[in-house]
Amino acid sequence: MTKRVALLRFPGTWSERDFQHAFSLVPGVETEILWHAEAKLKGFDAAILPGGFSYGDYLRAGAIAKISPAAAELKRAAAEGMPILGSCNGFQILCEIGLLPGALVRNDHLEFRCDWVRMRVEHESAWAKGLTGQFLRMPIAHGEGNWVADERVVAQVENRGQVVFRYVDDAGIATAGASPNGAIHNIAGIASGEGNVVGLMPHPERCAELLVGGLDGVSLLQAIA
């Protein structure tokens, strides 16, 4: 049966059409772009928070999105087990609204990074099925991708297997140099305790066909098909 995926658009979201295109390459999935204030997720099988600069990143990246009616709708859907994926600014929003632990702060070197990164899939989640131990190569484009949390939360996400993606070097080692932003333990993406909500800084929608340099994004998007 065809799976329906909601792509949420906030003022300043910029990657919803890229997601729409990428999902069009995945058989058995249809998408709809929803304006955040009117987003009703009933009838959808999954939801995406694409990247961008919601509300101009004013106050903090993702901060103002948390007072959108979409926040309550996402919390309700997440509690019902809906697979929800936030990429880049979408990851920042998921942390701000409390669906994922921690926060994303300024890259430690202060630069905006537009590059390709290599990640190791550390644990199973709704958006990374059967990929554990594999390496994925994906593009990033962010200035605030430095995931932080206090020691207790860091230990918790590590011990409970919520670290889904970790930046690694060509040898597959999570070295400081492999991280594009200084994130604690090279964390590139995390999942909620139940594993249905996942956030990551890289852009799976921008590596879903060879024309743009890679196919690894498809492995995530097809997880819900």
């Binding site: 106050l59 948390k66 632990p101």
Partner: peptide, 9 residues
Amino acid sequence: KELLANPVI
């Protein structure tokens, strides 16, 4: 609490 500061950071 609700908006101006993120208690995590």
